[in-house]
Design a protein around this nucleic acid. Sequence first.
DNA 1: CATTTGACTAATT
DNA 2: GAATTAGCCAAAT
Length: 112
Amino acid sequence: MNPKPENQNFFEKVYAVAREIPYGRVTSYGAIARYLGAARSARMVGWAMNACGGREDVPAHRVVNRQGLLTGKHHFSGTNLMQQLLESEGVKVKDNRILDFDKLFWDPSKAL
DNA sequence: CATTTGACTAATT
DNA sequence: GAATTAGCCAAAT
């Protein structure tokens, strides 16, 4: 154990919320950030995802930008892995964009 | 300790 | 309406 693991507050919180995303749903970085109290730290959420390397429990593919664009797909293995993962969950993706994003959008603050 | 970056978002051009 | 700039905040170098 580390002397002061404390917690990767931000990262852990982001991971916790990401894990709460129900199957076949998606959310935005800003929504998570807002839920964490860091309304303007949407980028931090993305950064946390970048660090999610070993966190398989973190469905980063369910987290997209506000437009439903798979901006982070380049960080996944391959080129369209993220899209395939979403499609595998029943989420229709067209040209890196999530269809019916408004319907599939999952708001953590609402989910509470 | 200062600088850079980065999977965003909103506003502006 | 698309492209660019600016603002934000926290971690990484």
